[in-house]
Computed example of a mutant assay.
Amino acid sequence: MAATGRHRFTRKRFTAAAVALAALGGGTVYAIDSSSNKAQAAGGCAAYESVTMGKYWINNNTWGADSGKGWSCVWDSYQSGDTIGWGTNYQWSGASSSVKSYASSVLGWHWGWKSQDTGLPVKLSAKTPVKSKWSFKVKESTDSVYNVAYDLWLHDTANTDWQSTPKHEVMVWLNKDGGAGPLGTKKERVKLAGAYWDLYVGDIGWNVYSFVRVGNTTSANLNLDDFLQALVRRKLVATTDYLSSVEAGTEVFTGKAQLDTTAYSTDVG
């Protein structure tokens, strides 16, 4: 199963209606049952609703729900300045080779929706530091196939909206289990930020570059621009491209588990 993963299957583009749902959030706990489209938790809501946390928002992103049955919940834990805590739990059945949900913290662009005062977008030629700290715990329960990963979106313009197709997607996998694996072909092993990463290259209508950490971790202290500049040096992305978004969360294929983010922050500049 190491060769399978979300990106080996076509990512669904969000429709305007689905994207609109993402802006309507309220409260702190959400759940969605993909088979009935009804809220399953107290104070529930529909897919793509959000919890605003300063410059971030937590997205109950169930973009792959149609490939299985189940639910996903998100909640906020605390906010102290630019550091937040949040969590998600889930239970999904269906093909273990397709992602059902990617509950995540969003900083910047997300198919048209943007928070204020994020420092994004930034042009890669500027080599702007994108410093991120993330500590989390995974409480695995039953047959869970997942990763815990950053998802970085690049565009060829600074002016993005919901119709803006990404030019590149860059993932940084910190943790995985159950055979989850990235799209594409492994190109090389690189050393960045004091660790080794396997670099995979694929294409789903835009280029997808995945850095998969050799050995799981539950904490990160990274300059995410290091990964972008590694791609610039390999001439895979251009210095004229813009980093428009930083997301951090868990891609879930199947199973039942919980991710608790005990501390997360990303600062640009």
Results as ranks from 00 to 15, higher is better:
245 S>K: 11
222 L>Q: 06
243 L>C: 07
70 G>N: 08
157 T>L: 04
260 D>P: 00
240 T>N: 15
90 Y>T: 09
16 A>S: 14
102 Y>N: 01
165 T>K: 15
29 V>T: 11
6 R>E: 00
68 G>E: 07
81 G>M: 05
195 A>W: 07
135 S>D: 13
130 V>K: 08
237 V>Q: 08
29 V>P: 00
143 D>V: 00
123 K>A: 11
191 K>N: 08
185 T>I: 05
127 K>N: 11
144 S>L: 02
53 M>Q: 14
54 G>I: 10
122 V>I: 15
136 F>E: 02
55 K>M: 05
1 M>E: 07
9 F>Q: 10
73 C>T: 15
214 V>A: 13
75 W>I: 04
48 Y>P: 00
227 F>L: 03
20 A>G: 09
251 E>L: 01
199 L>M: 09
65 A>N: 07
128 T>F: 05
93 S>V: 04
84 I>T: 11
177 D>A: 15
147 N>S: 11
12 K>N: 12
39 A>L: 03
248 A>V: 05
97 S>T: 15
87 G>C: 06
157 T>K: 07
146 Y>G: 01
182 P>L: 01
149 A>I: 05
269 G>T: 04
16 A>E: 14
167 K>N: 08
21 L>W: 02
15 T>E: 08
232 V>N: 05
258 Q>H: 02
45 C>G: 13
31 A>W: 00
143 D>W: 01
41 A>Q: 09
225 D>H: 07
70 G>I: 09
239 T>R: 13
49 E>S: 10
266 T>S: 13
241 D>I: 06
117 D>T: 10
180 A>Y: 00
175 N>I: 03
53 M>H: 01
50 S>H: 04
123 K>E: 14
158 A>V: 04
117 D>A: 14
109 W>P: 00
143 D>T: 08
171 M>T: 14
69 K>Q: 12
158 A>E: 10
130 V>L: 09
39 A>N: 11
40 Q>R: 13
260 D>A: 12
34 S>I: 02
47 A>W: 00
248 A>S: 13
111 W>P: 00
143 D>S: 13
78 Y>W: 08
54 G>Y: 12
197 W>T: 03
89 N>S: 04
240 T>G: 12
173 W>P: 03
224 L>F: 07
47 A>V: 02
